[in-house]
Amino acid sequence: MRSYEVIFILDPALGDDGVDAAIAAASGIVTKEGGEVAEVQKWGKKRLAYEIKKRREGHYAFLRLRAPVKAVTELERHLHIAESVLKFLTVLAPALRRRPVKAKASAPAPKESDTHGMTVGVHGEAVGSRRTGAEVQEA
């Protein structure tokens, strides 16, 4: 079991129900394969930095998972197929450092800066884990 962060962009034409349904479908797959969804965030409709499938905006959905590899591959397969998903990205969440570093570990938790209601840096305990990110993406 590892922690992952999954972001996917949904068709802007979807209503709130559609977005919820897509998120539910994704989390359903994860739980079915023995993983758990630790956190769900809806970032709402955002403008895309570039055009994807002729769309200039999309609904962003963010999931934080704790799941076996099997669940993640299955989820990705689903996201590949789902028509309403414009693009998605899966990354390994920064792992917790096993041995606390003396100075850094005793320092207060990193400040939360608020970007569109997402929490930032809360999870980011790991230093020197730049290799944690197996990135998977889909155009």
Partner: peptide
Amino acid sequence: KVLQVDFKD
């Protein structure tokens, strides 16, 4: 004191 630069930020 950012421990891990976050791509979501």
